[in-house]
Design a protein around this nucleic acid. Structure first.
Lengths: 347, 347
DNA sequence: GCGAGCAACGTAAACGTTTTCATCAAAGCT
DNA sequence: AGCTTTGATGAAAACGTTTACGTTGCTCGC
């Protein structure tokens, strides 16, 4: 029932070869016959069989995205960016999300085998051995937010280090000296980098201070716990910097419980700029990650790898982030808010 | 240098037919030879070429999801539900999102032609003519949140009507009599149904009242405007029900501007239960849509259509929603909160 | 012990493209 | 005019599977 290239050929009174050439713009056909062929194809509503085509072409015009169990804005923005660029390159997007187990991800990766021209991987669980075992070495791949720099795959990371660094500088500039930090999960790459950025900035700007660092795990509850813990200490920090916004929201709740005014009594900052950050009271100062850009850049990188493959595959890129100053950090109270690079405020 | 079925056949010293049979579990092979074949395949890291397979099988084991320009939780939850069920059925997920123009969506739909076994469509822009023109009539399809009941496609809708209806009943039960409604965009199907639900409930329970209805467009700004407009009127409503949460947040801001206490001076409710709803002050009472369930059910429906195609394709299903009572509606103030079905509160 | 039946296995066609190669006509060159 | 070049077109091979159809050898019932 489906109409094939043969039907078009018959309809246009040419050979299948000419139809193929005409429709692919490969040249070698008169404009007259091309027109006739195009008309015949349109009349018959011919649409080439993708599988047959990619069987011989060895190109699927599809890229795969292997993603962990993401939620909310992060997921949608990432896909938005990827999809946008993919479409620009004429590529389809095969999504496989919600992989938390390693074997789960491995299965998904293998299932994508041969269905995609390239692959985008975002997962904390992948290490070098995993990739070696499950990723065909000739399949173009871009790793997102990965600690791996094995020199065989392209990697695109968020510049967590610079982001925290800039935020610390900003907080110091506002006048806060005793800054405490709430970390993310120990095994999370982003969390590690953010902690390092914090330590580095403090070490540089306040070499004599030994800032308080309490453990969190990126959840609101852990933020609440951390906030309480910080208040329980004898000397209260002047500012608290949480490694992500959800924990900052938790801290906020702890401070509210204690009857503290934010930022009057204690300043607060987060990381990620999730939508909620804008709506809590006071609005949360944070570090914005342009997630759609992350997706876009990753896709661009991958498209490049696909279009001209070669040994230049290995490369490491970083995507900067901006600090966004709202009320919770106290900058709008301070007489002169100096310091901090690439700052921005909501309109 | 990819390894094909022939390589496996040679390695296992059998014919390609046997390899195919063994690997597909089609029977007709001794357990001994099957074992030998499986081992050979494993040794060679053989993975069948999907395109070649689907060329002859006419099955791609992939379903397409055509989505509009969605944001945040809605998108990610929907995909989560779809992906979960898709995987359970051994299907891959081809996503094409961010289609705002009709021609854009049409192009995407045609591009999916032959790459998918079935398709999931969520778009306010598709009408019957569009589907007729761009959707092959033999391709299984499920329409989400669509007003279409053309008897040719399966449709799965959120029960917006029942949701608003229940919320109105709840608000009345709490003691609010003058309830105003803020509508969504006129051309949005969900918005239309919600408005209808509101009108129906009011007509039934307060037949003599003529409730205030002001226009919004689902944005926070339009909610702010609507809130101001409602306060400007001579008789202030006792409760405002916004057709979605973002507009409710806008209303909240308007009320705050006016120095009103929510819910003391005026009650407020929204629809959707976006994550922000829980974090505004006071927390917003709203109607929860279990979006992941929507995705799951849609996928289940589609899988069914694919597995046993037939004239039974047309069907209309509805997914209920729950009202979640937080502080903004005033139920926690009232002495006895009665009315409202399927209520729930946050733990 | 012998034909029938059956299970295991192999051969080859088919799926719908792209692409190489050959063919052929027209046009350009001397 | 004769030869070469060029450009359009067609025939057929190839891509890697699945599957219908044969072929083989074995078992079973008599």
């Amino acid at each position: 029932m489906t109409v094939t290239i043969k039907d078009v050929a018959r309809e246009a009174k040419v050979s299948v070869a000419s139809v193929s050439r005409a429709l692919n713009g490969a040249g070698g056909v008169t404009t007259a016959t091309e027109k006739r062929i195009r008309e015949a194809a349109a009349r018959l509503r011919y649409v080439p069989h993708g599988a047959a085509r990619s069987l011989i072409t060895r190109r699927t015009h599809t890229i795969g995205a292997l993603l962990p169990d993401l939620h909310g804005e992060f997921f949608s923005e990432l896909i938005r960016g990827i999809d946008q660029k993919a479409r620009a390159h004429g590529l389809h997007l095969l999504v496989s999300s919600a992989h938390d187990g390693v074997d789960d991800a491995a299965a998904a990766l293998r299932a994508m085998q041969g269905r995609v021209d390239g692959i985008l991987i975002l997962s904390s669980r992948v290490d070098e051995a995993f990739l070696k075992a499950n990723l065909p070495q000739d399949l173009p791949a871009v790793l997102l937010n990965s600690p791996l720099e094995d020199g065989t795959h392209a990697v695109l990371n968020i510049d967590n280090f610079a982001g925290t660094y800039a935020m610390v500088r900003h907080l110091l500039g506002v006048g806060h000296e005793r800054i405490a930090f709430v970390t993310g999960p120990k095994d999370n790459f982003d969390a590690q980098q953010r902690e390092q950025g914090f330590r580095a900035a403090m070490a540089e700007f306040m070499p004599n201070a030994s800032p308080r660092i309490v453990a969190g795990d990126f959840t609101e509850r852990s933020g609440l716990r951390a906030g309480r813990e910080l208040l329980a200490a004898k000397s209260r920090p002047q500012a608290v910097f949480a490694a992500n916004d959800m924990m900052a929201v938790g801290c906020l709740q702890a401070f509210r419980e204690a009857g503290l005014d934010v930022p009057g009594d204690i300043a607060l900052a987060g990381f990620d700029d999730i939508p909620i950050a804008r709506y809590v009271a006071p609005p949360l100062s944070t570090v914005r990650v342009r997630i759609a850009d992350l997706g876009r850049n990753a896709m661009e990188l991958l498209a490049d790898l696909i279009e001209r493959p070669g040994p230049s595959a290995a490369s490491v890129h970083t995507l900067g982030c901006d600090i966004v100053v709202r009320d919770s950090c106290g900058a709008h109270l301070a007489r002169n808010a100096s310091g901090g690079n690439r700052r921005s405020s909501d309109p």
